[in-house]
Amino acid sequence: MVKGIVLAFLAFAVFAWGDAVVKAIGHDLDPFEVTFFGYLIPLLLSPAFMKSGDRLSDLIRWKRPWPMALRVFFISVTTPLSVMTFTRLPFAEAFALLFLMPSLVTVLSIVVLKEKVRWRRGLAVVAAFIGVLVIVRPGFREFLPGHLYAIATALCGAGGVIMGRMIGTTEKRYTLIGSVFLGTALIAGILMIPGFIWPTATQWGLLLAFAATAFVAQALFIVATIYAPADRLGATQYSQILWALAIGTLFFDEWPDALALLGIAIVVAAGLFIFAREQTLKKNPSQAAPLAPPEQLGTLSSSLQSE
């Protein structure tokens, strides 16, 4: 168990540094171009996730085509949206808004899955939205496009989670992981054409670093699930906010003010409570919706794949 938790913490640390690389690329490259090259290499390396009996054709051979297609779409568009988020907002603030995703999952589970949500989780959802208001402070500070991109990323990530729950355990692990790499590279590859610019040597280095983090972090999390149940590792994702605060301060000279820190704390606390509450309800299957394995769910940026 301990080894799995340590590996999960390490995986999300790598994810956080990958997002830092994206922020370092900045506005120099089209976000769809960044996404394409960032996922092309993981796609080429995805056979490393294959088990005995898996085939390359499993990437597009789906047992439940419509839920899988929607899952791939939702998760695929989260990365370019998150790229636009990280290049337009302070690092920690961007992460905090992306952590709105668990609350949106709860809302969507009511609408789509007809799940019954009791008052405790309902209050946590309300608290998360209050935290977002504290961070954004509409009417007191400028509402930036990055805020909209962050909320859209969280919403699409939540959609990916809901589709993962609908799919259940019907698809192979390689199908679930590789199809996201394929879908993301394909969608981004098409959308990057109008704004394509050939990267410089420095940009190539950053793109390769981003691709490496996407693959390595996913692999670390999968290894972590060998040593600990996947649903016990979800809370480790919130360690990313600590990395975001440290990286933003040390490398991007970003210093969140007191209200921003308060809002971040509220959003993270609400997300952790929702996670803990779902774990409690899971002990009583009649009260909780089934949770899919991590490779079936959507992230925050690249890490949505490990939620």
Rank of each mutant, 00 (worst) to 15 (best):
V77T: 10
L44N: 05
F37P: 05
S109K: 00
V72T: 07
L59G: 02
T79F: 15
S76A: 14
S52P: 07
F95D: 09
R61N: 11
F37M: 12
S57T: 15
M84R: 07
L104G: 00
A92I: 09
S46I: 00
P67H: 04
L40Y: 07
A96C: 11
F73V: 10
I75N: 12
W66Y: 12
T106A: 15
M68I: 10
I75Y: 09
I75E: 14
R61V: 11
L89I: 04
F73R: 12
I41N: 06
G38I: 12
P42L: 04
L89R: 03
P65H: 04
L44V: 03
I75G: 11
A94H: 02
S46M: 09
F49C: 05
I75R: 03
F37D: 00
L104W: 07
T106L: 15
T79V: 14
V83S: 07
P102Q: 08
T85K: 03
V72H: 01
F49D: 04
V83I: 14
L59E: 04
G53N: 06
E93G: 01
K63F: 09
A92W: 12
L104T: 10
F99C: 09
F74L: 08
L98T: 07
F73C: 10
P80Q: 14
V34F: 08
R71P: 09
T87V: 12
T106C: 10
L108R: 04
M68V: 13
L81P: 05
L97Q: 01
I110Q: 11
T85S: 02
P65G: 06
S52Q: 15
F36M: 08
